[in-house]
Design a protein around this nucleic acid. Structure first.
Ligand SMILES: [Mn+2]
Ligand SMILES: [Mn+2]
Ligand SMILES: [Zn+2]
Ligand SMILES: [Zn+2]
Lengths: 135, 135
DNA sequence: AATCTAGTTTATAATTATTCTAAAGTGAAA
DNA sequence: TTTCACTTTAGAATAATTATAAACTAGATT
């Protein structure tokens, strides 16, 4: 992912490209594979990577803006912390509760044959499949 | 659900049948249909139904004990509060974010035709399907 | 370049769901 | 009745998140 794309992600999220935001955006989006994280885990990784630390509030604000702009999605995981996902396409997850780790499942790797119709007056927005793992 | 079953639920959860616990258990389990709730919503309903109010800590403790004993299950819903479910069988949910309401889907009403195999050394514990609704 | 200003970062406070604590209450058994 | 382990309860503690407000910065304007 090029610098110009990083700047585009920031601007399309209504964020001016400050030093902190560029660091966060580069860390999130300059990678090949999906990245699943909580604000806490992201913060720890940023501390390891950077020389100066970024205030938690800035990380919360930036992540939130990316989520609103659709550059990050939120994954519902049992527990108190919110999980975010750099994969914003429609997809599913394995969840390994031993390691608290999420693993992507491509939408095409799950085929649902039968599904009930939505309740009266409602439509289906999306279908999320969550596969819990054990050892 | 008979009084004897209520007492059985309490005892099998390691709880002595006190006045408060019996009230909570009757409210949760003496009903035909599935009941989805948060501790906050349960508390509000109990206040309406009962003359004396039960301490929040008692509600938390009792619900937690029922969950540990397997008499309640926990449903993962986007948001900060924990949702509980009197339906402890394997099943799925519609979620209406407008009303913050869960609706049960019988396990037999969803058939998954294709599913990826679990990662190395792991097995599938269970599969949860969550269908988000819109208007 | 110096100035200006809206937007930003940060430390800290506030909020909220949940859990903990410790003091007072209860009830079955001795 | 007395006892004592178990309970309830109000309030304190905790943890994730959001809000606040003062100091700072990036760009735009002179
Ligand atoms: Mn969660
Ligand atoms: Mn949740
Ligand atoms: Zn994902
Ligand atoms: Zn249910």
């Amino acid at each position: 992912m090029k610098k110009i794309d990083i700047l585009k992600k920031l601007r399309s999220s209504g964020l001016r490209p400050t030093k902190q935001r560029v660091e966060i955006a580069k860390f999130l989006f300059e990678r090949e594979k999906t990245f699943h994280f909580t604000v806490e885990s992201l913060n720890k990784l940023l501390i390891k990577k950077l020389t100066s630390k970024i205030a938690l509030a800035t990380i919360y604000n930036t992540v939130h803006a990316f989520k609103i702009a659709g550059h990050l999605s939120e994954v519902e995981v049992r527990g108190k912390k919110t999980y975010f996902d750099t994969n914003i396409s429609n997809h599913h997850h394995f969840y390994d509760s031993e390691t608290a780790e999420l693993i992507d499942i491509d939408a095409n790797d799950i085929i649902i044959q039968k599904i009930p119709k939505a309740p009266n007056g409602k439509k289906i927005k999306n279908v999320e499949v969550f596969i819990n793992l054990k050892n």
